[in-house]
Amino acid sequence: MSPSENQLIRSAQEGDVEAFSQLARNFERRVYTLAFHYTRDPHDAEDLAQEVWMKAYRAIGGFRCEASFYTWLRQIMINAFLNHRRGAISQWKNERHDSFEDARSDEGEEIHFMLKTPLGSMEDDFERKLLVGRVMSALGDLTPQQRLIFLLKHREGMTYEEISRAFGCSVGTVKKSLFRTIAKLRQQLGITPAPLEYAQCGAG
């Protein structure tokens, strides 16, 4: 934890809104991005991200610096996400799902093309939106808990143990959830076992 972050935390604990605002600036992109992938709707993501920060501001007095600020914030985020009303989540999916449904017939071939080709070299923006739509639609087919476990593992880099503690479940449950999530995403995105010449970037 950097000294400046410590100082900001102390000031925020004394009620300094500007200090907390500076603290939020350091992490607001991560929070919003996770909220967006969780809700799949920009407006819901905005609301959810701000809700997380409001809760963090109210609870900052109880932060004891035993863990990093972001670790503490992430637990607030997980609780806020799981308590977020489900009805507000599926708007993006409902709007986008139909428009991309027609393009699914030949998506396996396109996905292999995307695996081989960097996103920046795509000819136009349409293919990018197409890819985003498919991935978001695939995320929408997961349960909120599966989606959050996957995002925390893959995007946030949390360990099995950290996730199991946050969710109050076993490590085995987390592993099973991740396996099923990958399988569902593969199925929704139409990714079959690729020919070896197209799968160069997959092996890591």
Partner: peptide, 26 residues
């Protein structure tokens, strides 16, 4: 060969997801 193909498909799924996730950001 089967396990390698499965492994690459799973890794590929994550790569596609990452590309879409980056592209979806404002």
């Amino acid at each position: 060969t089967g396990c390698l193909s499965e492994y690459r498909a799973m890794s590929g799924t994550l790569v596609v997801f990452d590309q879409a996730a980056e592209a979806s950001l404002p």
